[in-house]
Design a protein around this nucleic acid. Structure first.
Lengths: 196, 196
DNA sequence: AATGAAAACGGACCGCGGTCCGTTTCGCCT
DNA sequence: AGGCGAAACGGACCGCGGTCCGTTTTCATT
């Protein structure tokens, strides 16, 4: 007999070799990205560096985009943790407005810093962008609520977050707009949206 | 003797065969896109449909993205014309606020309609997105100025335009948010930014 | 320990975007 | 006209993302 407690639907009883390979792939990918830069890392390179076949990469991660998303996830999770339970003003404990501004600044700088990886992980319908965006919207919506903002908070959150997108930021940088100015502009936007 | 009036730096004295081929390519590409959909149009297909070699495509347009941008440009130019000199409320003649709202609605619907082509034409550092975005920012900035909005108008324009981006819109549609709701949310955003 | 089926593996294979370079065409100038 | 340098052409070629399917590994059961 198996499975004394057939708990709900456990997503995936992953086989041992699969787990081992997955870890090896992620480690190899991270290292290669660090040394060569995202754009110079090919799936075949990662595969041979991890000591697996190319097919395995695609089996586990679906696409190059998926692999990059998995790599990105590790740092992203840490960032989300610091938003949820880190020190103020990013984490809880500061007034909502300060938290909101800190959140935007942090998100913006993070986007710039790991822009290449984020772009490599963000495609047309990437599962990654759904999850990441969802978290950000959730958080901003919550802060707007605490600030007693009224209206369609989900849409306002999306509107507030949109200018922080890497593509948008990079476009502005190409036009010689400094990060500080972008940041100040975003603060202004937020104050207008929140009102008062 | 040539060139009696050596006007500034004319960009490119294009050769006759080059012009002919360029036209043939654009026509063929447009037709193929219409019938098969953007994603099923390969460079080789376009080349043979236009009766030229693949190398010619890349010579004239630099990349697939560039070709798509050129195709998109034709409709985009028409749209820009209707903004600049078409009937109100999109064109001149209506009060600035009405024009601004009409502009956003029109841009949003256009983005949704030709989303696939826009995405195919918009890459990491596409010349296209620079030009198109530049026009939009210019126009919104102008309207904000007429509305007596104070602040960093360029950044405010960018912030207002960001939520209209196809990627953002499609993300919301995936989350089952209707276009009407998105539109209403955007109107709300604009009113908050403009103030009063 | 033996066994058998499900799951994972891996590398040959494909299609497409993009490059390269020898060949062809154009159009200016005598 | 016809010759000449520059520009455009075109298709063979390359690298990479992604797929496919025959082979190997794992692990639950006996």
């Amino acid at each position: 007999m198996t499975n004394l407690l057939p708990m709900a639907d456990e997503p995936a009883p992953e086989r041992a070799d699969a787990a081992r390979n997955r870890q090896a792939i992620l480690v190899a990918a991270l290292e290669l990205i660090r040394t060569r830069g995202v754009d110079c890392v090919t799936m075949e390179t990662v595969a041979s560096a991890a000591g697996v076949g190319k097919g395995t990469l695609f089996r586990r991660f679906g696409s190059r985009e998926g692999l990059m998303a998995a790599v990105l996830n590790e740092s992203e999770a840490a960032w989300q943790a610091s938003v949820i339970s880190g020190p103020p003003p990013l984490g809880p404990g500061a007034p909502p407005m300060e938290r909101l501004l800190a959140f935007g600044h942090s998100r913006m700088r993070t986007n710039v810093t790991s822009g290449a990886l984020i772009k490599a992980a963000t495609g047309d319908s990437s599962a990654r962008s759904r999850a990441a965006a969802s978290f950000a919207v959730m958080h901003v919506r919550h802060l707007l609520h605490e600030l007693r903002v009224s209206g369609d908070l989900v849409l306002l959150s999306i509107a507030i977050l949109a200018p922080l997108d890497i593509m948008v930021i990079e476009q502005q940088q190409r036009d010689h707009i400094s990060l500080d100015r972008i940041e100040a502009g975003w603060d202004d936007l937020v104050r207008r949206v929140v009102g008062g």
